[in-house]
Structure formats: C-alpha cells, structure tokens
C-alpha cells in the first residue's frame, strides 16, 4: 500500500515536471499553429500546420517580409497570421493616393491574398507587443512541407 502511494506521487511529479517543460517550450521557444482562412493564400492554405518560433518575437527581431502570428487587435481571443509589410518609419501606400507612416512600436501587416484579407488596411498599424511568433516552415500537409523564411 505504501509502495503504491509513493509510486503514485512519483508519477504525478513526473507529469508536473514534463508539463512545465512543455509549457515553457511552447511559450518561449516554438510551437505548432494550425491556420484557417483564406487571407494568406497562395503561401499558406486553410488548415495548414506551421512550425513557429517565439524567440524573434520576444527579442523584437522582426523584419520585413516575415510571416508572423499575432493576436488580433480587434478581438484578443483570435490569432491572425499575416506578413509584415512595414516596420516603424516606413511609408505605406493605402489605396490610390493616400499613404501612411508606420508609427514607432508598430508594424504594418497584410495578407498575401490582398483581395480577401482583413489586415492593417482595415484596422491600421498593429502594436509589436501583439506579435506572438514567427512562422518558420510548413509541416502539414507533408507533400507541401517547405520553409517559409527567405
């Protein structure tokens, strides 16, 4: 009976330990994200699974052209997957003649599918603090597995 109790405590300890390791990895190093929606076609299709890394978001090393996962500025429960088009100080053309300058601490996000994407053109520049991670490669479907960085 005593032996049984000790072994239970031991295995609970293992579960907690590996749970903590997994949590830290997914929170600070990298994780897998499933994308849905048409906004990043033809680069990413609906239901593709991406491997993302959090290190460049935490150290604020995001560059132009990166595909990033961010919290949606208008709905904190939703995440968005877009391409960084402009960094602070960049001049972005909006529409025909209008142009906007990306303010300090923000980025300009756009989907690759320009005609079917809700992005910075509708909600404006996005604060860098909302960026969660940067997409590295597509891992699913296997036949389309490819790097997304260039």
């Amino acid at each position: 009976m005593r032996k049984f109790i000790f072994s239970t405590i031991g295995s609970v300890g293992y579960i907690i330990k590996y749970g903590c390791v997994a949590h830290c990895t997914f929170e600070y190093v990298g994780d897998f994200v499933m994308c849905s929606g048409p906004s990043m076609e033809p680069t990413i299709y609906s239901d593709d699974i991406l491997l993302t890394e959090h290190i460049s978001a935490l150290t604020q090393r995001i560059s132009r052209g990166d595909i990033i996962i961010a919290k949606c500025p208008t709905n904190p429960k939703q995440q968005i997957c877009k391409r960084v088009v402009g960094l602070p100080g960049d001049k972005i053309r909006v529409g025909f003649a209008d142009s906007r300058i990306v303010p300090v601490g923000h980025v300009w996000l756009q989907g690759d599918n320009t005609n079917n994407s809700t992005d910075s053109r509708s909600y404006g520049p996005v604060p860098q603090g909302l960026i969660r991670s940067r997409a590295l490669c597509r891992v699913w479907p296997l036949k389309n597995a490819s790097l997304l960085t260039n």
């Binding site: 604020q60 303010p103 300090v104 601490g105 923000h106 604060p127 860098q128 603090g129 960026i131």
Partner: peptide, 9 residues
C-alpha cells in the same frame, strides 16, 4: 499592466 504600444520592450 500592459505592454506599451509605443515600445514593446
């Protein structure tokens, strides 16, 4: 507490 929108650090 929040991350400053002007400076993410």
């Amino acid at each position: 507490s929040l991350i400053s929108p002007k400076d993410p650090g």
